[in-house]
Design a protein around this nucleic acid. Structure first.
Length: 492
RNA sequence: GUCCCCAUCGUCUAGUCAGGUCCAGGACAUCGGCCUUUCACGCCGACAACACCGGUUCGAAUCCGGUUGGGGACGCCA
């Protein structure tokens, strides 16, 4: 059996978005599963729209996701000779012809046919120009494009799609498409096929928006005497209004980079993406990398498009709730040292990182993360909601401040009193801190909850968190005492 | 307009190819409850779908036809 060879060919006209990332992921999964190769090819022939930043963004995005490739990145513009040679071959063998129709003429015709509600498409007026006519036009200096000559056959052209099944269309429906611009630059339809032939691509997994291209490209493979690869057209990702997701209309929320910058765990995001349009046929929803590679299959990719379920300005979910749910799952179940490495980057970025967390305080660091990670949603939460564990300059949130502190002015005496008692403790552990706090509440004849909730607010700034006495021990005697004594400044 | 593709809870989906075990299963979200010093987690429960109409059949989510709906493509973009 020959080696499977897949490719991911983004056009660098914007950042890597979730649809592209999913396409890359599916190609990657299939390559891994079959022991094949994945090739990254940057399709930059649209020089007007391609940008360096975009290329960089795509490469970084793939790297963050952990989608690695075996060859490339290749750049399509570097293979212009191949494309031109193929165009020449097609012209010489009569599979293509020169067309002298100008853009203006074509635009006018298109409008007319549209108005007449006729099928759009080139009217083939240059298809049967004689050699003399062509020579005459060229002598007059008229520019021309090269068009592919769709074979004059009756019946249907088709191919077997791995996801959709047999796809067919009548030859009469296929347009004589342009393969070379008037400036001599070959176009996508041709370049893409020439590159795939050269790169010996065996499987093309791409979006359903390419289906009409595929019919044309099947003809190109035939004309170029190349074997046809296996095609698989994936469902598209749509927004909640069922419109195709695009960089332009949705903004950063559909960019892979957004998820990196908002504290997603890379594999969690892949896991989410994999399930958006594919399932193994059972109820499993969390997959390790190895499990997913093993379980993945082209045949089980859904035919119908999937909706990326995010609501603009949703106060509770900043993106698809399921994506967040999956991220939370990994956040709580991954090996704590792996979490530690990821949180390290967040702490570093915020200037909260202490080198000792990698050495003498490593044990404390990992235990603390383990203690607080249960109620977090993203990696970002460690430096925001969890700031009080790593620094003294955390903010006290208004809600718990009002509810748990300001409501009881006596706390200005009670908490310092508790601090004094804590200072005398020889063993600052869970049992002792709890005993002392409850004892004080008893003496004051108040509910322990008042003391405990006030403490939570003063010590962590948060309304909610882990068990209070776990927190005290984690934050440490000295810091706890300081924070309890400073309660007064919250009342001003 | 023309061609192509698709159609199960709000969302992701299982079940469709090989019709009965499906008055349709799971997950997220939502809403209740339990647990709890808080909030989460966890657990328990509720809500919620076979687009419609015909046909085939003893029997249809499943097969066939049509309708409707949605999407995609129709560039000297990729």
């Amino acid at each position: 059996m020959t080696e499977t060879r897949l490719r991911f060919p983004p056009s660098p006209t914007g950042y890597l978005h979730i649809g592209g990332a999913r396409t890359a992921l599916y190609n990657w999964l299939y390559a891994k599963q079959t022991g094949g190769k994945l090739i990254l090819r940057i399709e930059d022939t649209d020089t007007g729209r391609s940008t360096k930043e975009s290329i960089q963004g795509i490469i970084e995005g793939l790297e963050w996701l952990g989608i690695d490739y075996d060859e490339g990145p290749y750049f399509q513009t570097e293979f212009e000779e191949d494309h031109t040679a193929a165009a020449k071959k097609l012209l010489e063998k009569g599979s293509a012809y020169k067309c002298f129709c100008t853009k203006e003429q074509l635009d006018a015709k298109r409008e007319a046919t549209l108005a007449a509600k006729q099928p759009l498409g080139y009217d083939r007026s240059c298809r049967n120009l004689s050699a003399a006519e062509i020579a005459e036009k060229e002598a007059a200096g008229l520019p021309s494009v090269l068009r592919f000559k769709v074979p004059a056959r009756s019946g249907n052209l088709g191919y077997d799609d791995k996801i959709l099944g047999r796809i067919e269309s009548n030859y009469s429906e296929i347009d004589d498409f342009v393969i070379v611009r008037s400036n001599g630059k070959p176009l996508y339809l041709l370049c893409n096929v020439v590159d795939d032939i050269r790169d010996r691509i065996t499987h093309i997994i791409r979006g359903q928006d390419h289906m009409t291209n595929t019919l044309k490209q099947v003809l190109l493979y035939e004309a170029l005497d190349a074997p046809l690869p296996i095609f698989a057209h994936m469902p598209l990702t749509l927004d909640t209004k069922k419109a195709k997701i695009s960089k332009r209309s949705h903004g950063e929320i559909v960019a892979v980079q957004f998820y990196r910058d908002n504290g997603f765990i890379p594999w969690a995001f892949n896991n989410f993406l994999a399930l958006l349009g594919w399932s193994a046929g059972n109820d499993q929803e969390f997959y390790s990398k190895e499990e997913l590679i093993q379980a993945f299959s082209l045949e089980r990719i859904n035919k119908s498009s999937a909706i990326f379920n995010f609501q603009k300005n949703d106060p509770k979910f900043f993106t698809d709730p399921k994506a967040i749910f999956i991220n939370e799952h990994y956040l709580r179940t991954m090996d704590i040292s792996e979490i530690g490495a990821m949180v390290k980057k967040e702490l570093e970025a915020d200037g909260l990182w202490d080198e000792a967390y990698d050495s003498t305080k490593k044990d404390w660091y990992l235990k603390t993360l383990d203690l607080i990670r249960d109620r977090f949603h993203t990696l970002k939460d460690f430096t925001t909601l969890g700031r009080a564990y790593f620094a003294d300059d955390f903010t006290v949130e208004p809600k718990p401040l009002a509810k748990n502190v300001l409501k009881y002015t006596e706390l200005q005496q009670w908490l310092p009193e508790l601090a004094d008692r804590y200072e005398k403790l020889e063993s600052f552990d869970i049992e002792e801190t709890e005993r002392v706090a409850r004892e004080l509440a008893d003496e004051l004849e108040i509910k322990p909850g008042i003391i405990i909730n006030a403490m939570r607010t003063v010590v962590t700034g948060q309304l909610a968190g882990p068990s209070m006495f776990d927190i005290l021990v984690t934050i440490g005697q000295e810091r706890v005492i300081q924070r309890l004594r400073a309660v007064g400044k919250l009342f001003v």
